[in-house]
Design a binder for these strands. Sequence first.
DNA 1: TTTTTTTACGCAAACGTTACCACCTAAGTA
DNA 2: TACTTAGGTGGTAACGTTTGCGTAAAAAAA
Lengths: 345, 345
Amino acid sequence: MKFEAVTIKDIAKALGLSTSTVSRALRDSYEISPETKKLVLECAEKLNYRPNPVALSLKERKTRSIGVVVCEIANSFFSQIINGIESVAYDKGYNVMISQSHESYDREVLDLQFLSSRGVDGILVSVSTETSDFEHISNLHDKGLPIVLFDRIAPGINTHTIISDNFKGAYEATEHLIHNGYKKIAALCPSEFLSISNERLAGYKEALNANDIKINNNYIIHSFYGGMVFSEVEEAINQFMTLKDPPEAIVTLSDKLTLGSLKTFKRRGMKVPDDIAIVGFSNSDIAEITDPALTLVRQPAFEMGKASMELLLQLIESKRPITEFEKRVLSPEFIVMHSGLPRKR
Amino acid sequence: MKFEAVTIKDIAKALGLSTSTVSRALRDSYEISPETKKLVLECAEKLNYRPNPVALSLKERKTRSIGVVVCEIANSFFSQIINGIESVAYDKGYNVMISQSHESYDREVLDLQFLSSRGVDGILVSVSTETSDFEHISNLHDKGLPIVLFDRIAPGINTHTIISDNFKGAYEATEHLIHNGYKKIAALCPSEFLSISNERLAGYKEALNANDIKINNNYIIHSFYGGMVFSEVEEAINQFMTLKDPPEAIVTLSDKLTLGSLKTFKRRGMKVPDDIAIVGFSNSDIAEITDPALTLVRQPAFEMGKASMELLLQLIESKRPITEFEKRVLSPEFIVMHSGLPRKR
DNA sequence: TTTTTTTACGCAAACGTTACCACCTAAGTA
DNA sequence: TACTTAGGTGGTAACGTTTGCGTAAAAAAA
């Protein structure tokens, strides 16, 4: 069921030339006379010739395609990241193959294997929440496959990385609540395996420290699936609220955790910020339409995607092995709305 | 910078066999003796041999990859669709290449051209809002490239299509408002070029008709970019509210339009449903956390994606040309919350 | 034993393209 | 005039794989 494509041979036959001449004419080689070039170009145009990318890939041993591994595509942050990746890829004529780990380690291993066996020229990875062993990544990297890590970084892999300033984001969020009079501030974090989790948690702790508020370990919960499983969030909030001394405010350290928390509050009939204040990480476009409007930390997802792809291309297209790697940190945006305001009563 | 892969030749050399023997052994041909097979298999395992997919593609003239063209990936509906597509593709060992039209006709043409020149085995398309001429699609289709259309259908192309029951969704949404006592109900629609727009508008009109409410053309606005540009939504709402006889309720006929409308209401300080009731299409996971909780029509996006991919595979893998095409219509979900409730005053 | 069949493998072409090398012709140089 | 040089072109191998055909040796049939 595939249509027959016009090849260089067809042109050669039509013009009574050899394939090599046609090939050179098409690539505008200096060895070919202007008249022949013109003839070939016209014929190619007429027959609607398109070079076969598969044959080219085989010859040049590169596919002009890259792979992306993320946990979930149906997540604003990651879809915006992919948007950024795609914008650069499009400009440079690269194809983007996307695969999702669904936060599963096994699936991530399979994804990486699939992509590399498919011959992609490089891979962009943000590790899954389950991933604590990074050998599947470092193995490929050691073999020479260009890899760039973004957002959720795998430690011990010496390559370019792009993250947003997680520490700063969490610090600002926490400080905002403190400035608005809250002292009992809980933190709901993604899995402790994730780099982002620790960076953000450190920001939270540092903000408390800087304001002489003692860190209460009961106020810190790691949600293993980072909000992908709603019940996990519900349970965490429940745990917070049944403490003898429940928090008055909460910082939610990922998009899904933020959304899940808001949903839980609503279900429990808790008013924000009167019953509980919240400031969270989120890249959803819903900040304004929640009840009340959400004060949030927004990561520069699109820019992160662009930067990741640019660095990956740099790796791919470099003639000589690169040994100096960049760790790029982009600044998040802090958007103040109402969910972190001082309570009224 | 690419790592050297193990080829069939390496195995042949290591074992003192010919490449054809190795190839046949790997494919478990009857011509090869069990001992040789075992030897080859072991050697392949040891050297970590992976067949080169590019070479295979060249030989078999298929790439085991498919293309997807959507307007935007950062849109819940489409990211859920892609999720469905990917789940089937993954099972069948297909690669998914995603490209976005960003609602631009020119970009859509380029995307299709790029994907087909990249040799994908088939393409899944949901047309952009700007697209009113479908030749770029039918041309490829006529050449024999398998194409399946989903959600936003291009008329005049004889192939499989998957949509949700847009008429029914809009009908139910409108009827819900009518049952709750509203008579002045406006409709905010996507571009009139889009198939979904007309189907949904028809559902809206039919619900009004069935309840003896006269259709008021001032109550119908088509938003060309379907909410991708926020100002367009703002303007439309503005236009509604400055009518001599403004609507009391509104049905928003796409995800972005729904979210945009809610945002506009909030900015204008309009209370839902007291100042205006709203029921809209949406696949966002925010229904519960808006103010008030949103009554909505949810399309079975994941299932639509799955169905699309399944039908495309059927086209791709069929031995003989298919002339009988399926038009699959999936039922949307109607979720009643509070935004369409009778007003209190 | 001789002939036929079967088994098990190798050779080479093909997929579409590029690149190295070789070749021929005509013009320039000695 | 003879020789070199440059310009323009063709032949062919190679990328990794599959596959039709050929064939030697072994097994079966005569």
